[in-house]
């Protein structure tokens, strides 16, 4: 009987995945049949009438790529610090603090982003970047409110950071001490040891950690919604407002909408689902192919960031 129940529960887990995919495709089908692949190229999202996802895909990709650009080097550096550079006692304090960052609910990070971080960026960082690098279109006119793609990048980067840090830390801890000793005994500095022996041999694991980090940023709906400004546009100016797939679904799905809009929102969800499935399968493939130790992350952190 236990076997039956246990098997049943397991089948349920598989069935849920299937049901999610079915339900989303099914609900999206009116939009799919109306717009087809043109959905991805069309920029207008005009409530009740015309729907195109181009601006949202652009916003999602730009914010996630930006978040990765910030979180990957910082996260890997923190992973190195916690596993190889710091004293064990220091790591025992700072490690849990970093993990705690992953446990802060995204709606609270978003609240902080819109009230504290956004205004600070608008009044300090954005004008400074604009003055120094204004000739690059990316650093255009500072935002009016503190909401925008740039703020979203920072907020999503903060959310991806602890995930990359914790996974790479655990990864680097698996480097055998014989290997590290071998490098040090040749007259290498600690950094040379890290570069030559740790980073070079852990590349697949690091890549998979970054993928898992960016997957958090891609799928984050609430914090992005709170800080990005919700404007359907493609702008070269990072400080301008924008929008993402998740944010649009989150704010529009419970409104009183036309059938076509609901279907279009499901179409957006389908895009998000496809991106996430691809990204997660890629991370898994890397782990399998290179037999990377435990790249799925520690349980304590795994249960961290809600979105």
């Amino acid at each position: 009987m236990l076997l039956g129940l246990a098997a049943g529960a397991s089948i349920l887990a598989v069935a849920i995945i299937g049901l999610i995919i079915y339900e989303i495709v099914n609900s999206a089908s009116p939009a799919i049949s109306k717009y087809g692949l043109g959905f991805f190229g069309h920029q207008t999202w005009n409530n009740y009438t015309v729907f195109g996802a181009a601006t949202l895909i652009f916003g999602t990709v730009v914010t996630s790529a930006g978040a990765l650009l910030i979180a990957a080097p910082l996260g890997i550096a923190i992973g190195l610090y916690l596993s190889l550079f710091s004293a064990r006692r220091t790591a025992a304090i700072i490690g849990p603090l970093v993990e705690m960052l992953a446990a802060v609910p995204s709606v609270i990070i978003g609240l902080w982003g819109i009230i504290v971080l956004g205004p600070f960026l608008r009044s300090t960082i954005e004008p400074w970047l604009h003055d120094a690098l204004g000739f690059i279109p990316l650093f255009g006119t500072p935002s009016a409110t503190g909401s925008g793609v740039f703020t979203a990048i920072i907020v999503l980067g903060i959310m991806a950071l602890p995930i990359i840090a914790a996974i790479t830390r655990d990864l680097f801890l698996t480097v055998p001490s014989e290997l590290k000793d071998g490098a040090l005994a040749l007259g290498a500095t600690r950094w040379e040891m890290v570069r030559g022996v740790v980073l070079s041999s852990m590349r697949p694991g690091i890549a998979s950690a970054c993928i898992l980090g960016v997957s958090r940023a891609l799928g984050e709906a609430i914090a992005a919604l709170q800080v990005i400004g919700s404007v359907f546009q493609i702008s070269s100016n990072l400080f301008a407002p924008g929008n993402t797939l998740g944010a649009t679904i989150a704010i529009q799905a419970n409104a009183d909408n036309s059938k076509l809009q609901v279907a279009s929102l499901f179409y957006l969800a389908l895009v998000l689902l496809a991106i996430e499935l691809l990204v997660n399968l890629a991370a898994q493939a890397i782990v399998r192919h290179y037999r990377v130790p435990s790249a799925s992350g520690p349980t304590i952190v795994a249960a961290g960031a809600p979105n």
Binding site: A13, N26, A253, N254, A302, N307
Partner: peptide
């Protein structure tokens, strides 16, 4: 089964939410 759990684990919560919305709430 492990694959399903991993995929569920990585699934954006907004996707899970809209799934329930479509399945039960609409």
């Amino acid at each position: 089964i492990r694959l399903a759990l991993d995929l569920l684990y990585g699934m954006p919560t907004i996707v899970i939410a809209i799934f329930i919305l479509g399945l039960l709430v609409v």
